[in-house]
Amino acid sequence: MHLSQPYLLFLGDAPDHLAAKTARGIHQWRPDICVGQLRLPGCETTLGLPDLTVEEAAARGAATLVVGVANRGGVIADHWRAVFKDALANGLDIAAGLHQKLNDIPELVETAEEYGRMLFDVRHPTETFPVAHGVPRPGKRILAVGTDCSVGKMYAMLAMERTMKARGLKADFRATGQTGILIAGEGVSVDAVVADFISGATEVLCPANDDDHYDLVEGQGSLFHASYAGVSLGLLHGAQPDYLVLCHEPGRAHMRGLPGFALPDLDACMDLNLRCARLVNPEARFVGACFNTSALDDDAARRVMHEASERLGLPVVDPVRSGVEPLVDRVLGDA
């Protein structure tokens, strides 16, 4: 799935900042591909970008209208459709990561066909993927794994990509979820791939490359999550990672969506991920951990990360508070 850039970010009538988190993530990590925002009456958030009509965005070179807002149920509101049709008529493609598909709305499909434009439902892959082969391939791959869902795996890999590129290294973020795909402009939403082909899709996503090239593979779920462990395992085998980064939120009371399940011990989580990763790469190793300490004050965050670093014998960082330089140093030291 390859999206044309730059983007016009559609905020619709988002009631708050959280509702527009997809657009916010795109703007944070790829500000250079965002020409403006489109807000409807009632929108209560902004990215600080120019407010543009579809026509104005097209004149500025926008190639894709990205639906950067989510509502309850992930549906495409009826009053959004006129804007989407206007975008198609003005030469823009449309991309969305909602549960409801753009391609399931006949009037949008008809309009896209009339003007020769594309509708991208990034949550729903359309490619046919092979079964994984597990054969070693050149290039270096770094995979984020987690104690739970939604602990910062995408953020960690994007931060490492940015840091590595700033050092002049060959590095590319490989998106495996809908928001990551919209940020990167391409990728595979692996949680929507048929189970037998998750590892194969991941091999396609990060194929053989130069020996000094690094793929930063966005992780999903957790091997310890009763709902999503299958996707996590498929990524471990398909990515064939050389390096792993553990992602964790200190103080989280239970697994996301599963009140009866506690988060795993860090050592146990690392051990199981290593054992699974080493099925396809016996040299796989952890280079450190990324903690989401947003719920802690500065002193508590420093204490928690220092204690974990001492215990694990690896650097522990918060990508927001402290950056990921120590993890990149570790990768390059082990390369």
Rank of each mutant, 00 (worst) to 15 (best):
G177W: 01
M164Q: 11
L244D: 01
S227W: 05
L182N: 07
A159D: 01
D172H: 12
L223Y: 05
A226I: 11
D196F: 04
Q240E: 13
Q220Y: 04
A171E: 01
G221T: 07
P207G: 01
L246Y: 05
L158E: 09
K170N: 14
G257Y: 02
L182G: 07
L272H: 03
G257I: 02
V245M: 11
D215R: 10
G230W: 03
V135A: 14
A201G: 03
R137I: 05
D211S: 14
P207N: 02
D265L: 04
K140F: 08
A208F: 09
N273E: 08
D196S: 13
K170A: 15
G200L: 02
E161S: 06
K165Y: 13
K153M: 09
A239W: 00
P136F: 07
V217E: 02
G221Y: 02
C247V: 09
C206K: 00
I181N: 09
V194I: 13
R256M: 13
D196G: 12
H237T: 09
V231D: 00
L205F: 08
V193K: 05
A144Y: 05
A171R: 02
I142R: 03
A226S: 14
L216N: 11
L182C: 08
F197L: 15
A184G: 11
V190Y: 00
A166L: 14
M154R: 15
G187I: 05
T176D: 06
T163H: 10
P138C: 10
G177D: 05
S189R: 05
H213C: 11
T176Q: 04
T179K: 09
A175S: 12
L246T: 10
H254W: 13
D212E: 04
M160P: 03
A253M: 05
H213K: 10
R162L: 08
F261L: 14
A159T: 08
D271W: 00
R137S: 12
A226R: 15
I181Q: 10
Q240Y: 07
G185P: 05
H248N: 14
M160I: 14
A175N: 06
M160R: 03
Y228W: 12
D148C: 00
C206A: 15
S232V: 05
K153A: 04
H213P: 05
M255E: 01
H248E: 10
D267Y: 11
L272E: 07
V193F: 04
G260W: 14
G230T: 07
P250H: 12
C206L: 00
V217D: 01
V135R: 14
L274P: 02
S227E: 14
V217H: 01
A156V: 09
N273K: 05
F261V: 15
V188H: 04
Q220H: 13
E161V: 07
N209T: 12
